[in-house]
Write a protein that binds this DNA or RNA. Sequence first.
DNA 1: AGAAAAAATATGTACGACCGTATTGAAAGC
DNA 2: GCTTTCAATACGGTCGTACATATTTTTTCT
Lengths: 193, 193
Amino acid sequence: MERVSNREKILTEGLKVVHAQGFANASVRDIVAAAGVPQGSFTNHFESKEAFGLEILDLYFANNRAVMEETLLNDALDPLKRLRQWIDRNAARNECSGFRNGCLIGNFTAEAAAHSEAMRKRLIAIIAEIHAAIATCLKAAVKAGELPKGFDCSGTAEFIFTGLQGATLMAKAEGNAAPIDRFKKTLFAKVLR
Amino acid sequence: MERVSNREKILTEGLKVVHAQGFANASVRDIVAAAGVPQGSFTNHFESKEAFGLEILDLYFANNRAVMEETLLNDALDPLKRLRQWIDRNAARNECSGFRNGCLIGNFTAEAAAHSEAMRKRLIAIIAEIHAAIATCLKAAVKAGELPKGFDCSGTAEFIFTGLQGATLMAKAEGNAAPIDRFKKTLFAKVLR
DNA sequence: AGAAAAAATATGTACGACCGTATTGAAAGC
DNA sequence: GCTTTCAATACGGTCGTACATATTTTTTCT
């Protein structure tokens, strides 16, 4: 029987609660209730709610990074196919909530970046890492002849992540995948050529 | 001496507070303090905080609509120039806060859409109206020969708003206009042709 | 290897602050 | 003189966090 510490339960279940309800709207009591642990455990393991927020952001991004390595950075596939798969995987992650949860990175940016400098710094670092992964993929596409020589890989990488964030946000409002599909279609038809 | 009712003060000052701090993080006491009115006035004029939220969203969008009419829907200018001005005006609105405030429409989508169906419905209506305005502008561009015949105006309109939302969100994280500039550049160079 | 010491984790409860909202009555404008 | 607005205070609930105690795990020493 595998032993799961309370700390881990708070992180994994708390991530779900915060992702669904938003950081400010998810109380510590909501989080420990979802984790099925007593309230004192939260104080024991986290210095503050904000410190907990930073940890679940890292946890979320760890999953994100794993997806990036299976798709964007996966040399076994054609570069642009990797990019498409990455977008699809990101969309698929949101499908289970009817796209209502959005992306935690975007949610935290909207909600917490204004009043927690630590969180904003962390978000900037995460965004930069994603930009870099997309740019690496685009460079591979240039090398493979899927994109023209001289293509602005790093600039377009930023454009792509920005667009995907916006599409994920709009999907949250509308409750369906249409904005993401729309983004994908225009991206591949117009920008990546 | 112009008389400004407490209700109006709560709306205009409260909008600023909520825009800067987020809806959940802005308390009713913060709002009435910024408005310089007693706390009872809030209860007098608004059925609930959520009802107040819907009103400031409408107020924000009223400003937004005015900008759209001066830019996107202004027949005196070339269509694509209108679009560019509209994006610039949107960016300029955020500049004063170092881009940290973001767009209230996006902020509310990220924060409130999940737990207030009324707010989500209102956001959908607002987004549809903006889509329509952009599409009208693009259709004018086609008519003027700035875009090819058969250009997908309504689809691209959605793509543009989605992208601008994402760019505004990323600008909030980074605290500067770079994501918006990046978006604009790629949009006009690749998508609008 | 086993006991003692130390550290980390678990748990229940409590605190003070702040939340959104209610209530009551005075002031004011048509 | 009736209706709307203004104003002050209060209420019950929830918030993030603190704290005292119990239990488990890890480390250290003989």
